[in-house]
């Protein structure tokens, strides 16, 4: 994981976005259920979770497309109850980009200024500038349909940023891009966020993306926040079985088995922390899967199933063979909740 600057220090500044007991129920469906959350000014905040976990609804609540059924949301300390999207100084980069198909790229980017009554010459100049910021200078006269996925993504970004929002919301913005482009855009988004010093709220279901980009991550499941913390926190010290499993597919094992706590408690052991050790415990390999950079070993240790990730070697045990394994008890994390 790349070394990066520490997240902004917590000061007595107003938070960018605050959720206070926010719920959004659709009939019997609790899309968001009693969520409390503070997103700090200037941070890159990721909302991570499987589909249907409530992360996108939270984003739509901030944007104003949805209204909470209970609780309230503050944006820079101002109550946003009932405020329609167009009165919020918050902009969104949509998952499908939502570029207006009947306008060219320049008019798309200038849209926010147009509806605010900015003169044509002025807004087109600003739109040109915004396009060069995302390295699309000269693309203004094209139609959205003539652009590649990555280019559309940049247009959507320019269209949102031209309004100088206080918070930028990004709804799975990289989901439609191929792997190479996605990695490149991750880096660019991160740079852009630092340069602008703007609060980014980023929704994704890709845990690697969340961990590598965000200052802090909130993990969602079933409409509730499971854990909020730095990427390191979430990965090393998962609060629950769900987080341990969803972020990096950890081994969730009884604490006494792991050798760190009492019976009845649960612990998380990362697969890469298990090593092959001739002095270790006896284990039977039940499966071996070659993944390129690593090899995944399915193990059985006295009835407990474990997954290990080890570096490829010529002398790795095959499925059905016995081996010995070990782990550093310091790498085992005792979880607060077993569920």
């Amino acid at each position: 994981m790349p070394v990066r600057e520490p997240p902004p220090e917590r000061t007595d500044m107003t938070d960018a976005v605050t959720f206070r007991g926010v719920s959004r129920h659709f009939g019997p469906v609790r899309a968001v259920d009693e969520v409390d959350l503070e997103i700090r000014d200037g941070e890159f905040f990721a909302m991570l979770g499987p589909s249907g976990s409530g992360k996108t609804t939270c984003l739509r609540l901030i944007a104003g497309f949805e209204q909470p059924t209970a609780g309230h949301i503050e944006i820079f300390g101002e109550r946003a109850d009932g405020v329609p999207p167009y009165l919020r100084n918050v902009n969104t980069v949509f998952q499908s980009y939502a570029l207006f198909p009947h306008m060219n790229v320049l008019d798309n980017v200038a849209f926010g200024l147009r509806v605010k009554g900015v003169s044509r010459a002025e807004r087109l100049k600003a739109a040109e500038e915004a396009l060069s910021m995302v390295e699309l200078a000269g693309y203004g006269s094209r139609r959205a349909g003539e652009l590649s996925g990555g280019q559309r993504q940049r247009v959507a970004l320019a269209r949102a940023l031209i309004n100088k929002p206080r918070v930028l919301l990004l709804d799975e913005p990289l989901g439609a891009l191929d792997l190479k482009l996605r990695e490149q855009m991750q880096e660019e988004l991160r740079k852009l966020q630092r340069a602008l010093g703007l609060t980014f709220v980023f929704v994704t279901h890709d845990q690697e993306e969340a961990l590598s980009m965000a200052d802090r991550v909130a993990v969602f499941a079933e409409g509730r926040i499971q854990q909020v913390g730095s990427a390191e926190d979430i990965y090393r010290r998962p609060a629950s079985r769900f987080v341990a499993d969803f972020v990096g597919s950890s081994n969730v094992i009884p604490a006494d088995f792991a050798g760190v706590g009492a019976a009845g408690q649960w612990a998380s052991l990362r697969p890469e922390d298990i090593t092959l050790d001739p002095a270790g415990r006896e284990a039977v390999v039940t499966g071996r899967y070659f993944h390129g950079r690593v090899v995944k070993l399915a193990l059985d240790v006295g009835g407990q199933a474990l997954t290990a990730l080890v570096a490829p070697r010529d002398d790795l045990p095959d499925a059905g063979q016995a081996t010995r394994i070990a782990w550093d008890p310091a790498r085992v994390h005792l979880m607060e909740r077993g569920s």
Partner: peptide, 26 residues
Amino acid sequence: SGALIDAAMDLGADGVQTFTLVILPN
């Protein structure tokens, strides 16, 4: 796509502007 209407409002267009600038042309 419903996201177009969301996008227009997100960018600051009120109901009338959303209708005349985005919905109607589409």
